[in-house]
Design a protein around this nucleic acid. Sequence first.
DNA 1: CGCGGTTCATGCATTTTAGTATAGCGGCAA
DNA 2: TTGCCGCTATACTAAAATGCATGAACCGCG
Lengths: 297, 297
Amino acid sequence: MNRVEPSWDFYRTFLMVLRERSLSAAARQLGLTQPTVGRHIDALETSVGFPLFTRSPHGLMPTDAALELRPYAETLAATAAALLRAASGQHGAIGGTVRISASEVIGVEVLPPILAELHREHPELSVELSASDVVEDLLRQEADIAVRMVAPVQEALVARHIGAVPLGFHAHRSYLERRGIPRNLEDLSRHSVIGYDRETPAIRSIIGRAPDLPIGRFAFKADSNLAQLAAIRAGFGIGICQNAIAARDPDLMHVLTDAFELKLETWLVMHENLRATPRCRVVFDALARGLLDYLRQ
Amino acid sequence: MNRVEPSWDFYRTFLMVLRERSLSAAARQLGLTQPTVGRHIDALETSVGFPLFTRSPHGLMPTDAALELRPYAETLAATAAALLRAASGQHGAIGGTVRISASEVIGVEVLPPILAELHREHPELSVELSASDVVEDLLRQEADIAVRMVAPVQEALVARHIGAVPLGFHAHRSYLERRGIPRNLEDLSRHSVIGYDRETPAIRSIIGRAPDLPIGRFAFKADSNLAQLAAIRAGFGIGICQNAIAARDPDLMHVLTDAFELKLETWLVMHENLRATPRCRVVFDALARGLLDYLRQ
DNA sequence: CGCGGTTCATGCATTTTAGTATAGCGGCAA
DNA sequence: TTGCCGCTATACTAAAATGCATGAACCGCG
């Protein structure tokens, strides 16, 4: 029963051990040594009064109690990182680091040129791009700015509606020369169709809005939209992707243009507190302009 | 230009120095010594690369940059405290600490018996009551459960509507015997009326819903509703308070019952993540029952 | 004006903490 | 089996952080 508050550094170590499930691995990540990490965990355990991990030669198994504490530790880590990003932009003028969250496809296919242009204008500005389809929590400030394909629901967020990204079926010219061009949705059953593997939340939100497709089974399955895009480009078959991305490649053909269309509403979202922060403002505006340009194509 | 992340403990001392505006005072609060606190600040300043305070013999003045970092540090502190509260309830069964936020009047006049009853049922449960009219942020987990008089807007909060607390004009019997009983709102101008001093957000939200009152000036002004209540009880004059509180005291009379009534909608609010936490569930349910009983009076 | 109060800064001794090296344990493959 | 590689735990040493004592500057007060 220790009455003193534990060192906040212990929380950092605790979180890393949770993530790595091993003292040694956590020590490597943190730039510490394994005995030190072990001592931190020991100290935290005596401080809270119950064990956090069961030790084993394979690593550490978190107890249920430790798992309940994990979200708090994650928030601590996200906040500490956000504090450092905020500090990085305090040297005057526009500079520092901004963390952007976007889907894989947007992050890989759309954002890089926008961000490169931005960086030419503001060389002091660093950008962290988290290209992932798992939604990062802006309230927790896991990211400063997010490109979202779902309408933001949270208060305390400033959102700008960018527009609708049109999606459609595309295939490589070589594939269509081999297998022919489908004329209607029924033709798809005679084609190699590229689709999703498991129903992730992101995918479910998309197929929920899509019309019923007469697709028996997919010839190529991948949850990663990037992998699907790569399959389309490789001539594997017919798949769905953003029209504007496909239009860049003269070998990619838009098929079933009349029979099928899907629109993804796009928002740019930022935490309200960052509205007055110059570096975030600049990035927000640059992304808004860049994405609008992208949509106009 | 330091590449290593600063110790999270530095954030804790940083925040305390911001709050206390002095190294020595912060050291006393933290159980450290003044040189240690000074070294923490020095280390943090070299780490972020710019000064956080201007030193003076009177204390430390935070720079603008330091003030921008403050909200992050506050979030860190709130989260660390929430983590410890969560840890305090992990010893099995129901126990630990729950932090409740409520208005001054509710916290002083209504909650204590409810919490005392709760504590008899669960002696292992500790309660932190923050009786203040400044709204604590549940998303930041500055409190676990809040009794709110405004509708909760945030997502990620579980709210239960309790009902409407009726307010009315009340005065002490001795006052009314001296000055007479007002029969309509116009009579109030010939009475000593107890009201607010400055327009705080909490007060503004109340008077916004109140009908126009023909009150020239207040004879007694206090922002604290508790102080107003005390003035009513002391026979200073006529003031507004919760009917149920006044009804407990046989010497307090409800006046202008027909001419004036105001209802405060009441919600019980909790962070969604805590719904499954036994100790919070128990407190939430006990508060809901207790407040409903209070409303039925 | 000196005096007690406060503040922060600095040098030095001590305690605390981290790192190094090693031992022990368990799985895996030749 | 034996050898290897991962993990954790422990003893010992080195480094770093803390506390103590002190000095200097500033404020208010008699």
